[in-house]
Design a binder for these strands. Structure first.
Length: 537
RNA sequence: GGUCCGGUAGCUCAGUCGGUUAGAGCAGGGGACUCAUAAUCCCUUGGUCGGGGGUUCGAGUCCCUCCCGGACUACCA
């Protein structure tokens, strides 16, 4: 049964001048795992990712190559799409801020804010980083010797007349909003340490300029003042709204977006974004605009030695390196590792080949893969591939395994976006299966024909427990789970979930779904053990 | 400088309102087993809970202080 409330999850839109790398893939992967979990639950889910195209640097870079800004943006947006497609991300749409619909909506929003008085014209003077299209605070400017932190070029003293957003007047409303969410036990920002940072800073926030001059026509003009362009960050934040501000998608927005971001862009998402929304909802026609459910700011992947990953250190994971992992271990392995061992939380996580391999072998090969293999193999061997009956009535008597507790824990962990622990809930179940087989020794009983009914019971219950664990693992390792479902003759799950379809976690995780007599088969190993140093014979 | 988060086993972490011998997974050691992917299962080594002080009948947990790591922010300019 599909739950009534829809679910909306987003990633940031990625800067189109960048080449895709592990950071982009990680955030998108998190959103994908969560989106798949909600679809598995039967929830009407919308998952959005995309690219941010309007920055004068994009136009500059294009010009260097003799391309129009649009051509260059098209080309690089394509690179992101390609990477995400190859990683089988299930986003429902892909944001291009240069698209007509987005631009039109953003200018409507800004127009409404101009009319409401929350956006006004003013004068701003300060140190300007032309590369970043950003004003730099006096202290930061001094700290970096009045040069750009990013490209080292000198900052320019710039005074311009532009449009300001009355951010300062939202201090109290925003703090009130944060308090309200804390009281309702649904904190707006996760992890909590990040929320503390933001709250302290909100108390001191000032109005901010939201337009720029001289971006050469690449961007969205301020309504009624085409000499001014809407600041790219404002343009970008609005993507979350523009792409679902249509009659058939507005309900996703109203369900309350969950925004996955990296910690460096927290301020924009945790302060400026909700303030803009509070301002917008006061405008006629925008009363339906509510605030997001949550902003989840994850940390970074670092190298095993704790260094930041960067091209210059040659420990940078670009798409080619990631595809190397996919080729070696499979896409599921990459998904599982990133989602369960990643820097969700306030500290960074290490990405090392040896850790990756260890997690692959222990969790995926030795635990899930091996357990599925041994159970199905015994059914083939002792019952000729027909799923045996269980002596205890699966519907009226208490099963050996407390699978409903595993599932309850799993759901709790996903509610808190504790992906590592959600995966652990499923693995716990699989370890129970292995321990039960060890205790009951079906392979030994099978030598005595009179004990076959008992053997059958052990195998039925084991297969059933593994089936439930595989349903739980699907958001992480969809391909392996779908292959296992084929072994168990449960491919109807696969069909239900195909092409962003929905599943039914509640009924699929109920004990006793496997039908005795069903034909069981086995394909190649779900996760062949990875040998570090394979010796010739 | 101000503020915030963290420091628990070799590694990654859990530890509720202060309450019994501080836990899990992995890694290490020993044993068992043969259905399975050299797998699995059982047992086991390993911790002055960052240091010091305090409160308490009792502190990993509360208070003070210091050290270390990280973050946000400010200023000195």
């Amino acid at each position: 049964m599909a739950s009534a409330t829809p679910f909306y999850v987003t990633t940031p839109i990625y800067y189109v001048n960048d080449r895709p790398h592990l950071g982009h893939v990680y955030t998108t992967m998190l959103a994908d795992v969560v989106a798949r979990y909600y679809r598995l639950k039967g929830t009407d889910t919308f998952f959005l990712t995309g690219v941010d195209e309007h920055a004068s640097k994009v136009a500059d870079r294009a010009a260097e190559r003799g391309l129009s800004a649009q051509q260059w943006a098209d080309q690089n947006a394509g690179a992101f799409c390609e990477v995400f497609d190859r990683l089988e991300m299930t986003n429902n749409d892909f944001v291009r801020t240069s698209g007509a619909r987005h631009k039109q909506r953003v200018s409507q929003y800004v127009e409404a804010l101009l009319e409401s008085g929350d956006v006004y014209q003013g004068e701003y003077e300060g140190w300007y980083d032309t590369g970043q299209e950003e004003y730099v605070t006096e202290s930061k400017a001094h700290q970096n010797d009045y040069k750009s932190e990013v490209n080292g070029k000198p900052l320019v003293r710039k005074a311009e007349r532009n449009y300001f957003f009355k951010l300062a007047s939202y201090r109290e409303p925003l703090l009130g909003f944060y308090d309200d969410r804390i009281r309702r036990q649904r904190p707006f920002v996760q992890p909590q340490a990040r929320q503390n940072e933001v709250v302290n800073r909100i108390k001191e926030m000032e109005d901010i300029p939201i337009s720029r001059t001289g971006s050469g026509g690449w961007g969205i003009p301020v309504p009624g003042d085409p000499a001014q362009t809407i600041y790219v960050w404002i343009d970008a934040l609005f993507n979350y709204l523009t792409y679902v501000d249509t009659n058939d998608r507005r309900h996703y927005w109203q369900a309350g977006a969950v925004h996955f971001i990296a910690k460096d862009i927290l301020w924009f998402h945790a302060a400026i974004w909700p303030a803009l929304l509070l301002a917008l909802r006061k405008c006629p026609g925008y009363e339906w605009v509510n605030l997001p459910q949550q902003v989840y700011a994850h940390s970074y992947w670092v190298s095993a030695s704790g260094q930041k990953m960067s091209k210059s250190l040659a420990n940078f994971l670009d798409p080619e390196a990631l595809h190397g992992y996919v080729n070696e271990f499979g896409l599921d392995a990459l998904r599982y590792f990133l989602a369960t061992r990643g820097p969700l939380g306030v500290s960074d996580s290490a990405f090392s080949p040896s850790l990756f391999m260890e997690v692959y072998n222990t969790d995926l090969a030795n635990t899930f893969g091996n357990s599925c293999s041994r159970v199905v193999n015994m059914i083939l061997k002792y019952f000729d591939g027909h799923l045996p009956e269980c002596l205890v009535n699966v519907h009226t008597e208490k099963p050996t395994f407390a699978a409903s507790e595993w599932v309850a824990d799993y759901i709790r962990q996903f509610n808190d976006l504790e992906l590592g622990r959600a995966g652990e809930a499923a693995l716990f179940g699989i370890r129970e299966v292995d321990a039960h087989i060890e205790r009951t020794q079906p392979f030994r009983m099978a030598k005595d024909a009179s004990l076959l009914p008992q053997v059958g019971s052990v195998l039925y219950e084991s297969a059933e427990a593994l089936r439930i664990a595989s349903v739980m693992l699907w958001p992480f390792i969809p391909d392996a789970c779908e292959r296992f479902w084929r072994w168990l003759d449960c491919s109807h799950y696969t069909e239900a979930l195909a092409d962003t379809g929905v599943g039914d976690l509640q009924s699929w995780s109920r004990w006793g779904q496997l039908v005795p007599g069903a034909r069981v088969q086995k394909g190649h190993s779900l996760f062949p053990r990875y040998l570090v140093d394979p010796r010739p014979n």
